[in-house]
Structures are given as C-alpha cells and as structure tokens.
C-alpha cells in the first residue's frame, strides 16, 4: 500500500474515532489535520514550497508570474484539499506544471504538508 494511502487511512480512522467528521460526511483531509494540530508539518510544507514551488514559478506575493498565485483562495482546478492534492500530484500535461506525485522526499505526505502550508497563510478576497 502506498505510504500516502496508509496515511490517509490512518487519518481517516483517527477522524472517525474522534468524531471529527465534517458536515459533508467526509473525514478531514490530511492537510486539514496538519493545519489544525501539527505546526511542524506546516513548517515542513513551507520549506518544501520555498524550495520547490516558490522560486521562479508560484510567487509568495501577487505579481506577474507565469504560474498562479496560490494564497488568494482562487483555484482554477478546484479548491478542495483533495482537488489541490490532485493538481500537485498529477500536474497538468502540456503545461509547465509537473506531476509531483511520488517525487517528494517523504512521499505524498509532503504534498499534504504543502497544502496545509498554503491553507495556513491564505488571504481570501472571497471566502472559499
């Protein structure tokens, strides 16, 4: 079983046991769990974003960049954690967004940490 799936199952189990199931019936995503309770995971997400995404592609400030700004809650391909996960993991063929699935040092858990970091410092013009 891929480690990410392990993690997802584990976190889903934790969510059910603790009764932490959201109104839509889905357990919280790993990113949401990180965001709520794991500052170290958010910090790692920040360092991963700093080291891989934020240099020349996705800026940490709004501006003229080829890649979208990711902190304004405006999501072209879906703004749920799982949709963002899919965007990062699968990339977008025929664009310059690569598929990061399986390429992060600690597997897909690192992608969830990046999402947790994006969530932690978002500044929404309109609530998402």
């Amino acid at each position: 079983m891929p480690c990410a799936l392990h993690l997802a199952v584990l976190l889903a189990g934790v969510a059910i046991v603790t009764g932490c199931v959201r109104g839509n019936g889905l357990p919280p995503s790993p990113a949401e769990v990180y965001q709520n309770s794991d500052p170290a995971a958010i910090r790692r997400g920040r360092l991963l974003f700093t080291g891989t995404c934020g240099g020349y592609c996705h800026s940490t400030k709004p501006g003229n960049r080829e890649a979208p700004y990711l902190f304004d809650c405006s999501w072209t391909y879906g703004g749920s954690d799982r949709e963002i996960f899919a965007s990062i993991a699968d990339g977008f063929p025929d664009t310059r967004m690569p598929a990061w699935g399986g390429k992060m040092p600690e597997g897909d858990a690192d992608i969830w940490r990046v999402i947790a970091y994006l969530r932690s410092r978002r500044s929404c013009v309109n609530a998402d």
Binding site: R44, R46, L47, L48, F49, T50, G51, T52, G54, G55, Y56, C57, T60, K61, G63, P98, K103, M104, P105
Partner: peptide, 20 residues
Amino acid sequence: AKGISVFVEGIPYLGGLPEL
C-alpha cells in the same frame, strides 16, 4: 529564503527563493 531542495530531472531545482 532557504527551503528543502528536491531534485527531479527537468523540474526547477532551486532549494529556496528570494523574497522581493
């Protein structure tokens, strides 16, 4: 800013970013 470096062939390998 220094971040975590991840090398993947054909993908930017930057390890950080300059805050403007």
